[in-house]
Protein backbone atom coordinates (compact mmCIF):
# COMPACT_ATOMS: atom_id res chain seq x y z
CA UNK A 1 0.00 0.00 0.00
CA UNK A 2 1.88 3.04 -1.16
CA UNK A 3 1.07 6.47 0.28
CA UNK A 4 0.02 7.77 -3.12
CA UNK A 5 -2.67 5.13 -3.62
CA UNK A 6 -3.97 5.90 -0.19
CA UNK A 7 -4.18 9.52 -1.18
CA UNK A 8 -5.98 8.65 -4.43
CA UNK A 9 -8.44 6.62 -2.51
CA UNK A 10 -8.95 9.39 -0.04
CA UNK A 11 -9.48 11.96 -2.79
CA UNK A 12 -11.99 9.73 -4.43
CA UNK A 13 -13.73 9.17 -1.16
CA UNK A 14 -14.52 12.81 -0.55
CA UNK A 15 -17.01 12.94 -3.37
CA UNK A 16 -18.68 9.66 -2.52
CA UNK A 17 -20.89 8.66 0.33
CA UNK A 18 -19.70 6.28 2.98
CA UNK A 19 -20.44 2.95 1.38
CA UNK A 20 -18.76 3.79 -1.87
CA UNK A 21 -15.83 5.29 -0.06
CA UNK A 22 -15.16 2.02 1.66
CA UNK A 23 -15.47 -0.04 -1.50
CA UNK A 24 -13.61 2.24 -3.82
CA UNK A 25 -10.70 2.73 -1.44
CA UNK A 26 -10.11 -0.96 -1.23
CA UNK A 27 -10.67 -1.45 -4.96
CA UNK A 28 -8.13 1.17 -5.97
CA UNK A 29 -5.60 0.01 -3.44
CA UNK A 30 -5.83 -3.59 -4.48
CA UNK A 31 -5.74 -2.78 -8.18
CA UNK A 32 -2.45 -0.96 -7.70
CA UNK A 33 -1.10 -3.45 -5.23
CA UNK A 34 -1.75 -6.20 -7.76
CA UNK A 35 0.84 -4.70 -10.07
CA UNK A 36 3.40 -4.61 -7.28
CA UNK A 37 2.87 -8.04 -5.83
CA UNK A 38 1.81 -9.95 -8.94
CA UNK A 39 4.88 -12.16 -8.88
CA UNK A 40 4.50 -13.34 -5.30
CA UNK A 41 2.41 -16.49 -5.12
CA UNK A 42 0.37 -16.58 -1.97
CA UNK A 43 -3.28 -16.53 -1.01
CA UNK A 44 -4.15 -19.66 -2.92
CA UNK A 45 -1.91 -18.84 -5.86
CA UNK A 46 -3.10 -15.25 -5.95
CA UNK A 47 -1.17 -12.16 -5.10
CA UNK A 48 -2.27 -10.42 -1.93
CA UNK A 49 -3.57 -7.58 -4.07
CA UNK A 50 -5.71 -9.90 -6.16
CA UNK A 51 -6.96 -11.73 -3.11
CA UNK A 52 -7.99 -8.49 -1.44
CA UNK A 53 -9.36 -7.11 -4.68
CA UNK A 54 -11.47 -10.22 -5.19
CA UNK A 55 -12.70 -10.20 -1.62
CA UNK A 56 -13.73 -6.56 -1.69
CA UNK A 57 -14.90 -6.54 -5.32
CA UNK A 58 -18.14 -4.59 -5.49
CA UNK A 59 -21.44 -5.52 -7.11
CA UNK A 60 -21.24 -5.31 -10.91
CA UNK A 61 -23.96 -2.68 -11.18
CA UNK A 62 -22.24 -0.50 -8.61
CA UNK A 63 -18.72 -0.54 -10.00
CA UNK A 64 -17.24 2.36 -11.91
CA UNK A 65 -15.71 1.64 -15.34
CA UNK A 66 -12.24 1.69 -13.77
CA UNK A 67 -13.28 -0.76 -11.09
CA UNK A 68 -14.75 -3.05 -13.74
CA UNK A 69 -11.54 -2.82 -15.73
CA UNK A 70 -9.57 -3.78 -12.62
CA UNK A 71 -11.93 -6.68 -11.96
CA UNK A 72 -11.70 -7.83 -15.57
CA UNK A 73 -7.92 -7.92 -15.54
CA UNK A 74 -8.01 -9.74 -12.22
CA UNK A 75 -10.34 -12.35 -13.72
CA UNK A 76 -8.10 -12.71 -16.74
CA UNK A 77 -5.05 -13.20 -14.51
CA UNK A 78 -6.93 -15.80 -12.53
CA UNK A 79 -7.88 -17.72 -15.67
CA UNK A 80 -4.29 -17.56 -16.86
CA UNK A 81 -3.17 -19.07 -13.58
CA UNK A 82 -5.78 -21.78 -13.62
CA UNK A 83 -5.82 -22.75 -17.29
CA UNK A 84 -2.55 -21.32 -18.54
CA UNK A 85 -4.48 -19.53 -21.25
CA UNK A 86 -5.23 -15.94 -22.12
CA UNK A 87 -8.92 -15.17 -22.07
CA UNK A 88 -10.76 -12.00 -22.96
CA UNK A 89 -13.49 -10.94 -20.57
CA UNK A 90 -15.82 -8.70 -22.51
CA UNK A 91 -18.21 -6.24 -21.01
CA UNK A 92 -20.39 -5.36 -23.99
CA UNK A 93 -23.41 -3.34 -22.87
CA UNK A 94 -26.96 -4.14 -23.96
CA UNK A 95 -27.90 -2.91 -27.43
CA UNK A 96 -30.34 -0.01 -27.44
CA UNK A 97 -33.87 -0.95 -28.50
CA UNK A 98 -33.32 -4.69 -28.21
CA UNK A 99 -35.10 -7.19 -26.01
CA UNK A 100 -34.17 -10.74 -26.83
CA UNK A 101 -36.69 -13.49 -27.32
CA UNK A 102 -36.50 -17.11 -28.30
CA UNK A 103 -38.88 -19.38 -30.15
CA UNK A 104 -38.53 -23.11 -30.55
CA UNK A 105 -40.39 -25.28 -33.02
CA UNK A 106 -41.34 -28.44 -31.14
CA UNK A 107 -42.38 -30.13 -34.38
CA UNK A 108 -38.81 -29.84 -35.52
CA UNK A 109 -36.97 -30.86 -32.37
CA UNK A 110 -35.83 -34.44 -32.82
CA UNK A 111 -34.10 -34.90 -29.48
CA UNK A 112 -30.53 -35.12 -30.75
CA UNK A 113 -29.24 -33.01 -27.82
CA UNK A 114 -26.75 -31.21 -30.09
CA UNK A 115 -27.77 -27.93 -28.44
CA UNK A 116 -26.82 -29.27 -25.01
CA UNK A 117 -23.26 -30.12 -25.92
CA UNK A 118 -22.77 -26.94 -27.94
CA UNK A 119 -23.90 -24.97 -24.90
CA UNK A 120 -21.46 -26.79 -22.62
CA UNK A 121 -18.57 -26.00 -24.99
CA UNK A 122 -19.51 -22.40 -25.65
CA UNK A 123 -20.28 -21.40 -22.11
CA UNK A 124 -17.39 -23.09 -20.28
CA UNK A 125 -19.67 -25.25 -18.19
CA UNK A 126 -17.94 -27.48 -15.65
CA UNK A 127 -17.51 -30.93 -17.15
CA UNK A 128 -18.26 -34.21 -15.46
CA UNK A 129 -21.07 -32.80 -13.38
CA UNK A 130 -24.67 -32.07 -14.10
CA UNK A 131 -23.90 -28.58 -15.31
CA UNK A 132 -26.05 -28.27 -18.39
CA UNK A 133 -28.27 -25.30 -19.10
CA UNK A 134 -30.54 -27.20 -21.50
CA UNK A 135 -32.53 -30.29 -20.62
CA UNK A 136 -34.30 -32.07 -23.48
CA UNK A 137 -37.42 -33.87 -22.30
CA UNK A 138 -38.90 -36.82 -24.13
CA UNK A 139 -42.67 -36.95 -23.97
CA UNK A 140 -45.32 -39.21 -25.41
CA UNK A 141 -47.09 -37.49 -28.25
CA UNK A 142 -50.29 -35.97 -26.99
CA UNK A 143 -49.05 -35.64 -23.44
CA UNK A 144 -47.47 -32.40 -22.27
CA UNK A 145 -47.43 -33.22 -18.57
CA UNK A 146 -43.81 -32.65 -17.67
CA UNK A 147 -44.09 -35.10 -14.79
CA UNK A 148 -44.32 -37.83 -17.42
CA UNK A 149 -41.16 -36.74 -19.21
CA UNK A 150 -38.16 -38.94 -19.68
CA UNK A 151 -35.05 -36.88 -18.93
CA UNK A 152 -32.53 -39.66 -19.43
CA UNK A 153 -33.67 -41.15 -22.74
CA UNK A 154 -30.85 -43.11 -24.25
CA UNK A 155 -32.11 -44.77 -27.41
CA UNK A 156 -29.87 -45.99 -30.16
CA UNK A 157 -31.69 -43.56 -32.41
CA UNK A 158 -33.93 -40.56 -31.98
CA UNK A 159 -36.55 -39.44 -32.75
CA UNK A 160 -38.39 -42.44 -31.37
CA UNK A 161 -41.72 -43.31 -32.82
CA UNK A 162 -44.61 -41.77 -30.91
CA UNK A 163 -42.37 -39.43 -28.94
CA UNK A 164 -41.84 -35.73 -29.06
CA UNK A 165 -39.01 -33.69 -27.63
CA UNK A 166 -39.14 -30.55 -25.55
CA UNK A 167 -35.92 -28.69 -24.76
CA UNK A 168 -36.15 -26.62 -21.57
CA UNK A 169 -33.71 -23.90 -20.62
CA UNK A 170 -33.87 -20.53 -18.91
CA UNK A 171 -37.03 -18.78 -20.09
CA UNK A 172 -35.53 -15.33 -19.37
CA UNK A 173 -38.80 -14.48 -17.64
CA UNK A 174 -39.93 -10.90 -17.82
CA UNK A 175 -41.03 -11.21 -14.20
CA UNK A 176 -38.35 -13.56 -12.94
CA UNK A 177 -39.02 -15.17 -9.55
CA UNK A 178 -35.32 -15.94 -9.14
CA UNK A 179 -34.43 -12.25 -9.21
CA UNK A 180 -37.01 -11.55 -6.54
CA UNK A 181 -35.66 -14.37 -4.40
CA UNK A 182 -31.99 -13.40 -4.31
CA UNK A 183 -31.25 -11.80 -0.93
CA UNK A 184 -28.21 -9.90 -2.21
CA UNK A 185 -29.25 -8.80 -5.72
CA UNK A 186 -26.64 -11.05 -7.31
CA UNK A 187 -28.99 -11.72 -10.23
CA UNK A 188 -31.04 -9.24 -12.21
CA UNK A 189 -32.60 -8.58 -15.59
CA UNK A 190 -30.57 -6.52 -18.03
CA UNK A 191 -32.28 -3.93 -20.29
CA UNK A 192 -32.10 -6.41 -23.17
CA UNK A 193 -34.17 -8.84 -21.15
CA UNK A 194 -31.43 -11.30 -20.23
CA UNK A 195 -31.43 -12.44 -16.62
CA UNK A 196 -27.77 -12.41 -15.63
CA UNK A 197 -25.63 -13.34 -12.64
CA UNK A 198 -22.76 -11.60 -10.95
CA UNK A 199 -20.82 -14.75 -10.08
CA UNK A 200 -18.59 -12.77 -7.75
CA UNK A 201 -21.50 -11.48 -5.72
CA UNK A 202 -23.50 -14.72 -5.25
CA UNK A 203 -23.32 -16.05 -1.71
CA UNK A 204 -24.48 -19.54 -2.68
CA UNK A 205 -27.74 -19.71 -0.72
CA UNK A 206 -29.52 -21.35 -3.68
CA UNK A 207 -32.83 -19.67 -2.92
CA UNK A 208 -33.10 -18.73 -6.60
CA UNK A 209 -32.96 -22.43 -7.45
CA UNK A 210 -35.97 -23.04 -5.25
CA UNK A 211 -37.77 -20.12 -6.80
CA UNK A 212 -37.21 -21.04 -10.46
CA UNK A 213 -40.19 -22.92 -11.94
CA UNK A 214 -38.14 -24.23 -14.87
CA UNK A 215 -35.15 -25.86 -13.13
CA UNK A 216 -33.03 -23.42 -15.10
CA UNK A 217 -30.59 -22.53 -12.36
CA UNK A 218 -27.57 -24.63 -11.65
CA UNK A 219 -25.04 -24.71 -8.87
CA UNK A 220 -21.31 -25.37 -8.76
CA UNK A 221 -21.24 -28.06 -6.13
CA UNK A 222 -17.48 -28.23 -6.58
CA UNK A 223 -14.78 -26.35 -8.42
CA UNK A 224 -15.80 -26.59 -12.10
CA UNK A 225 -13.32 -28.54 -14.19
CA UNK A 226 -12.73 -27.62 -17.81
CA UNK A 227 -9.91 -29.06 -19.92
CA UNK A 228 -7.63 -26.08 -20.67
CA UNK A 229 -7.69 -26.72 -24.41
CA UNK A 230 -11.49 -26.73 -24.44
CA UNK A 231 -11.78 -23.39 -22.67
CA UNK A 232 -13.62 -20.81 -24.74
CA UNK A 233 -11.48 -17.74 -24.33
CA UNK A 234 -14.05 -15.34 -25.78
CA UNK A 235 -16.07 -14.51 -22.69
CA UNK A 236 -18.34 -11.93 -21.14
CA UNK A 237 -18.36 -10.67 -17.55
CA UNK A 238 -22.04 -11.58 -17.14
CA UNK A 239 -21.80 -14.67 -19.29
CA UNK A 240 -19.37 -17.48 -19.87
CA UNK A 241 -16.31 -16.34 -17.96
CA UNK A 242 -14.87 -19.13 -15.80
CA UNK A 243 -16.82 -19.66 -12.60
CA UNK A 244 -15.80 -20.87 -9.17
CA UNK A 245 -17.29 -23.38 -6.77
CA UNK A 246 -20.21 -22.40 -4.62
CA UNK A 247 -22.02 -20.06 -7.00
CA UNK A 248 -25.17 -20.37 -9.06
CA UNK A 249 -25.16 -19.96 -12.82
CA UNK A 250 -27.69 -20.09 -15.63
CA UNK A 251 -28.36 -19.66 -19.33
CA UNK A 252 -27.75 -16.09 -20.45
CA UNK A 253 -28.75 -16.38 -24.11
CA UNK A 254 -25.00 -16.55 -24.92
CA UNK A 255 -24.62 -12.90 -23.95
CA UNK A 256 -21.01 -12.93 -25.20
CA UNK A 257 -22.30 -13.78 -28.68
CA UNK A 258 -25.70 -12.17 -28.91
CA UNK A 259 -24.60 -8.72 -27.81
CA UNK A 260 -22.13 -8.85 -30.67
CA UNK A 261 -24.89 -9.71 -33.12
CA UNK A 262 -24.24 -13.44 -33.26
CA UNK A 263 -26.85 -16.05 -32.53
CA UNK A 264 -26.79 -18.32 -29.46
CA UNK A 265 -24.65 -21.44 -29.64
CA UNK A 266 -27.66 -23.75 -29.16
CA UNK A 267 -29.29 -22.23 -32.23
CA UNK A 268 -26.18 -22.60 -34.34
CA UNK A 269 -25.81 -26.20 -33.26
CA UNK A 270 -29.39 -27.20 -33.96
CA UNK A 271 -29.35 -29.38 -37.09
CA UNK A 272 -33.07 -29.07 -37.75
CA UNK A 273 -33.48 -25.31 -37.55
CA UNK A 274 -35.96 -25.64 -34.72
CA UNK A 275 -34.61 -22.60 -32.91
CA UNK A 276 -35.33 -18.94 -33.69
CA UNK A 277 -33.75 -16.02 -31.89
CA UNK A 278 -34.33 -12.34 -32.29
CA UNK A 279 -35.34 -8.91 -31.12
CA UNK A 280 -38.84 -8.74 -29.66
CA UNK A 281 -38.94 -4.98 -30.18
CA UNK A 282 -38.39 -5.30 -33.92
CA UNK A 283 -41.81 -5.81 -35.57
CA UNK A 284 -40.10 -7.24 -38.65
CA UNK A 285 -38.13 -9.88 -36.78
CA UNK A 286 -38.75 -13.57 -37.38
CA UNK A 287 -39.72 -14.09 -33.77
CA UNK A 288 -42.40 -11.42 -33.95
CA UNK A 289 -43.80 -13.04 -37.08
CA UNK A 290 -43.93 -16.38 -35.32
CA UNK A 291 -45.73 -14.89 -32.33
CA UNK A 292 -48.24 -13.25 -34.64
CA UNK A 293 -48.82 -16.12 -37.05
CA UNK A 294 -48.11 -19.44 -35.38
CA UNK A 295 -49.79 -21.22 -32.53
CA UNK A 296 -47.42 -20.64 -29.65
CA UNK A 297 -47.27 -21.78 -26.06
CA UNK A 298 -45.12 -20.98 -23.10
CA UNK A 299 -44.31 -23.27 -20.21
CA UNK A 300 -46.24 -22.61 -17.01
CA UNK A 301 -47.81 -19.38 -18.17
CA UNK A 302 -50.19 -19.66 -15.24
CA UNK A 303 -47.34 -18.76 -12.89
CA UNK A 304 -47.22 -15.25 -14.27
CA UNK A 305 -43.50 -15.35 -14.95
CA UNK A 306 -43.94 -14.01 -18.51
CA UNK A 307 -41.30 -16.16 -20.19
CA UNK A 308 -39.55 -14.70 -23.23
CA UNK A 309 -39.19 -18.20 -24.62
CA UNK A 310 -41.98 -19.54 -26.78
CA UNK A 311 -42.68 -22.96 -28.23
CA UNK A 312 -44.52 -23.30 -31.51
CA UNK A 313 -45.47 -25.99 -33.96
CA UNK A 314 -45.41 -26.23 -37.74
Amino acid sequence: MSPSTKKDAADQAQVDHSRRRFMKGVGTVSATAAGVTALKPAWGGMSLGDALGEFFQDHYQRMSPEEIAAAVSRIERKAKRKFGRDIQVGNAPPIEGVVFGYALNISKCKGYRDCVSACVQENNLGRGGQMEYIRVLELDKGDRNLDHANHYYDHMAVPQEGKEYLPVQCMQCDDPPCVKACPVDATWMEPDGIVVMDYDWCIGCRYCMSACPYSARHFNWREPEIPADELNSDTHYLGNRPRVKGVVEKCHFCIQRTRKGLQPACLEACPTGARVFGNLLDPDSEIRWILANKTVLRLKEDLGTEPKFWYYTD
Binding site: K110, G111, Y112, R113, D114, V116, S117, G128, G129, Q130, M131, E132, R135, V136, E138, D140, G142, D143, D147, H148, A149, N150, H151, Y152, Y153, D154, H155, M156, A157, V158, P159, W221, R222
Partner: peptide
Protein backbone atom coordinates in the same frame (compact mmCIF):
# COMPACT_ATOMS: atom_id res chain seq x y z
CA UNK B 1 -32.77 -38.65 -39.87
CA UNK B 2 -32.68 -41.05 -36.97
CA UNK B 3 -29.46 -41.09 -35.05
CA UNK B 4 -28.02 -41.59 -31.61
CA UNK B 5 -28.51 -38.58 -29.36
CA UNK B 6 -25.59 -36.78 -27.77
CA UNK B 7 -24.67 -37.98 -24.27
CA UNK B 8 -27.19 -38.34 -21.47
CA UNK B 9 -27.71 -35.46 -19.06
CA UNK B 10 -24.99 -35.43 -16.42
CA UNK B 11 -25.70 -36.10 -12.78
CA UNK B 12 -23.91 -34.47 -9.89
CA UNK B 13 -20.91 -36.62 -8.97
CA UNK B 14 -21.78 -39.22 -6.36
CA UNK B 15 -25.54 -39.08 -6.87
CA UNK B 16 -25.98 -41.48 -9.80
CA UNK B 17 -28.24 -43.75 -7.75
CA UNK B 18 -30.76 -40.98 -7.22
CA UNK B 19 -31.96 -41.02 -10.83
CA UNK B 20 -35.34 -42.62 -11.25
CA UNK B 21 -36.66 -43.95 -14.51
CA UNK B 22 -39.50 -42.48 -16.51
CA UNK B 23 -43.05 -42.86 -15.37
CA UNK B 24 -44.88 -46.10 -16.16
CA UNK B 25 -47.33 -46.02 -19.09
CA UNK B 26 -50.22 -43.71 -18.40
CA UNK B 27 -52.02 -43.20 -21.68
Amino acid sequence: LQRRPVALPGVRAGLERQVHGPAPPRR
